[in-house]
Design a protein around this nucleic acid. Structure first.
Lengths: 145, 145
DNA sequence: ATTATAGGTAAGTTATATTGACATATTATA
DNA sequence: TATAATATGTCAATATAACTTACCTATAAT
């Protein structure tokens, strides 16, 4: 019979609150840069994914973001206006559109990321390897449900 | 000189994506119950905090949520209509209003929480004590910047 | 008496998302 | 080859949650 403290409701509530705060703070540190380019959180997330997955297709972007295509298209249009993304048709299946950040886009991502990563970097630097590895492990388990 | 893999940009990007997904999934599992009561994510967060901090004041709620009072008041009005919160004036400083979930409110919270905590509970149950403790530790460090 | 704090409210706006319906091009398949 | 499925785009309307600016009352502290 498990009677671990951290499986009790109060601890779970506490953890859920922390997950919320961790997310909110991680995605608000870069607000000044976003304002500079008149974009928001939704744009930041798309730019982040484009930096991680160069040439990702629209449908894969949608699957990662879990938003509707109407919602994503609004954001993409803004990024086109900002002139920071480009598209390339798939050479085999021309229905598929691959999305890339151009040089300007990469620079803007770096500006955003420089601010955003500080919080995480500092937290990891201040932790042992084992702590970091375990943090990642549990986070993965939470994600995978 | 630190040369740890997990301090490299690619790993930080990966972690930031996971923090986003972890938050999103953790706060979407209970959507069906929220729909049942015609409330949303903002209400869920307030109810969660009211369950954690019984009798919390308005200003402390605002500080935890980091939203404007106009925004909070909209949510509180909905919760009043739903008849799930009550207020009590502070006995010493009558400017301060303490907010509580009533019995109906506590029941609705439990309905929400039952769905929401499953994901976390499962992840923790599937982890060692050390993993859980380290997850919490690093998360705290991320929060505290 | 003045200032600070706790809280409320009104009007207008913005950001991000939704649903539903429909359209086009391309690829896969019976 | 005809048909179905896939990938993407778009229009219109609506919802959710937040914001800014401004002003208000009541109470407490100095």
């Amino acid at each position: 019979m498990k009677e671990l403290l951290y499986l009790k409701d109060d601890q779970l509530k506490d953890l859920i609150e922390k997950i919320f705060i961790g997310y909110r703070e991680t995605f608000s540190d870069s607000k000044k840069i976003l304002d500079k380019y008149s974009i928001g959180l939704a744009h930041q997330k798309v730019i982040h994914l484009l930096s991680m997955y160069e040439g990702i297709s629209i449908s894969k972007l949608l699957a990662k973001l879990k938003v509707t295509k109407q919602s994503l298209n609004r954001v993409l249009k803004d990024l086109i206006k900002l002139e920071i993304i480009v598209f390339k048709k798939d050479e085999i299946d021309t229905r598929i559109k691959h999305v890339y950040l151009n040089e300007k886009g990469k620079k803007i991502f770096e500006e955003i990321f420089l601010l955003q990563k500080k919080r995480i970097y500092k937290a990891l630097l201040d932790s042992s390897s084992e702590e970091v590895i375990n943090f990642d492990k549990v986070l993965k388990k939470i994600i995978n449900g």
